[in-house]
Simulated assay, not measured.
Amino acid sequence: MGHLPTGCGICTTIPDILYLPELIFGGLVWILVACTYVAPANPQAWVMAVSLFCFIVTFVWVIVFACGTHYNKSSWAAADFVYHFVATVFYLSASVLLAYITLALGTVGWSQIYKLDIAAVVFSFVTTLLYFIHTILSAFRWRSF
C-alpha cells in the first residue's frame, strides 16, 4: 500500500480497487436523481452537482493513475487523500440532504418518483461509505510514503 499504482494495478491494489464501485454507485446516484422531478424549491441540485463532480473527477483520477502520469510521488498520494476527503464530505452533505427531501416528499405516497428517490438515497449513502473507506486507506498510504 506504500506506492501508487499504474496501469492495471489500479484494479488490484487497495484502496484503488474502490474506484470502480465509486464510479458505479456515484453514476447510479446521478442517474436516479436526474430521473426524478426536481421542483424549483427542491435542493436536489446540490446532490446532482456533487454526484456529477465526484463522478467526473474520479474518472479523471482513474485515467491519471492508469496512464502512469503521477510518477509515484508523495504529493500525488496527498492529493489522493485530500480529494477523497473532500468527496466524502460533499457526498455526506448531499446524502443527508437527499434523505431529508425524500422523507419530506414521502408524505405524498409510494409514487414512482418516491421509489427513485429512495433508491438514490441508498446509493448515495453507499457511495459516501465507499469514499470514506477510500479516504481512510489513502491516508494510510500517504503516511507510509
Rank of each mutant, 00 (worst) to 15 (best):
A66H: 11
I24W: 11
S74E: 01
T6A: 09
A39V: 04
F123E: 01
N72E: 13
S93W: 09
V121M: 10
V121P: 14
P15W: 02
V62G: 13
I136R: 04
L105V: 07
F123N: 00
Y71G: 03
L105S: 13
Q112F: 11
Y91R: 06
D117N: 13
K73S: 00
S144K: 15
H84D: 03
D80N: 14
P43V: 02
L32A: 05
V50E: 00
Y91F: 04
V62S: 07
T36V: 15
A139L: 15
I101Y: 03
L137F: 12
W142V: 02
L32D: 11
V47I: 06
F81R: 00
T102M: 01
W30E: 02
A87P: 07
I14S: 11
L20F: 14
K115F: 05
A41M: 07
C11W: 11
G68R: 05
I10D: 08
F55D: 02
V96G: 00
L20K: 05
T13C: 04
S144D: 12
S138P: 04
V33K: 14
L18K: 06
A41C: 11
F55T: 00
V96T: 11
W61I: 00
P40R: 14
A104L: 08
K73R: 10
L92E: 08
Y37H: 13
I17V: 15
V47M: 05
